[in-house]
Write a protein that binds this DNA or RNA. Structure first.
Lengths: 228, 228
DNA sequence: ATCTATTTTTGACATAAGTCAAGGTAATGC
DNA sequence: GCATTACCTTGACTTATGTCAAAAATAGAT
């Protein structure tokens, strides 16, 4: 139980809230447990609230009729998801599925809207989170429309090194298939591009561990780069 | 002056606000006038507030180093834009340029944040707007990643007919070049696809006026369709 | 450890959409 | 009304990335 309040108090959404307000939130939250690969919601579903990841990992994604998947986000501990219909409409705009065994908190809609009306800082926190997501979408659209797959991959790898802060060593936290889906491509294409980057001594791939051999080259590639 | 308060009071952002609150907003707002094709802000710019369109039309877009443009949104009277950095960070995530002679209101950041803290309904309105935009981005990513250009175009055309509610007649409100950029393609490709749809009696193109000859066919195409 | 299932890689091929270039049409300003 | 500019269309060609199929490697379960 203590662990849950820890996650809650660390989450940007609840930044600056008092101890009392936090336990108020804990009281309206409902625990949900999922195995790996379980659907949390589908885009046709009605929405009575949103979720917060306590432990595990969740992907938000769309699928085409032909079965190709595009991952929109991957959320881990502390991240809320599924809030869009809480404020805008009735249905979820995408699907959510666990990619690890996960523990989620479900926050019922009305209780949260009541809370937010009372606490302006909670509203401002939520506005900040939604704004960050709009910014991320901006980048995602830019990547999909204006960059080729090698540039998107290079961009992701340099982003990951900063994120993990472990020198020039990166460890993929998702499968290569999922990474392909996140980058808007398919596993075959990703595999070929990783092989090419390897051959050109930009990176050194060993399973899910990747060593960045030429960070400048990758950053160049992320901008305007072509890969021979 | 009356016209401006009309626009403000119609805007979803100010839904449900009292007459007094509206004039409070009018007081902090600064009028800005732009000719067609003028830059409102660039993505590297600092942000001291956001804008509302009173008259005219503004495009929000990204450009690649090679010069290809991707339009993210087009906003008309009543729409706010550039709010993302007000709540998240310092810089704009994209560029804004007028595509018509335009009259904008600039709302300074701090004054608005103060207002929002006092009026929960203003916060909820803003949350609703940002949520709608997240939903739109969801669709845009889906279109770019999972659909081909003919499907995106068919989708846009059926959306426009509903929007304009003028039977099976649509009138493009932007140039075909801009439409190409909005759909994530280039004018040549758009032109060819319009010609093909014409040939297959899906539509009948006359300049910027398009008649939908086979709405069902277009909706089919928007989903999974291939165009021969 | 062995077997099974999933994930990843590689090859041969198809194709949607981009590039470059030129001509045509429409719109705008003087 | 004419000229200059911007917009749109068409053709020939290139290329990035998807498809299909099969083998190889890795991970999970018993």
């Amino acid at each position: 139980m203590k662990k849950i309040l820890d996650i809650i108090s660390q989450a940007p959404l609840f930044n600056g809230l008092s101890q009392e307000q936090l336990s108020q939130i804990r009281q309206i939250a409902i625990d949900k447990f999922y195995d790996k690969g379980k659907t949390v919601f589908l885009e046709s579903d009605d929405c009575n609230g949103f979720y917060i990841v306590v432990a595990g990992k969740v992907k938000i994604y769309k699928v085409s009729l032909e079965g190709k998947e595009q991952i929109l986000h991957i959320y881990g501990p502390g991240n809320p998801f599924g809030e869009v219909p809480v404020f805008s409409g009735r249905k979820f705009p995408a699907n959510a599925e666990t990619i690890l065994k996960s523990h989620l908190l479900f926050i019922p809609r009305q209780a949260f809207v009541d809370l937010i009306s009372e606490h302006p800082s909670l509203a401002l926190n939520m506005l900040a989170i939604l704004s960050m997501r709009l910014r991320q979408f901006t980048v995602q659209v830019e990547n999909l429309s204006l960059k080729e797959v090698p540039a998107r991959l290079a961009s992701y790898l340099t982003y990951l090194t900063d994120e993990q802060a472990t020198g020039d060593f990166v460890s993929l936290t998702i499968s290569k298939g999922q990474l392909a889906s996140l980058l808007g491509t398919i596993p075959e294409t990703l595999s070929r591009i990783l092989a090419k980057m390897n051959k050109q001594n930009l990176i050194q791939v060993e399973g899910r561990n990747i060593k960045l051999l030429n960070r400048n080259g990758l950053e160049e590639l992320a901008q305007h780069g072509k890969l021979q």
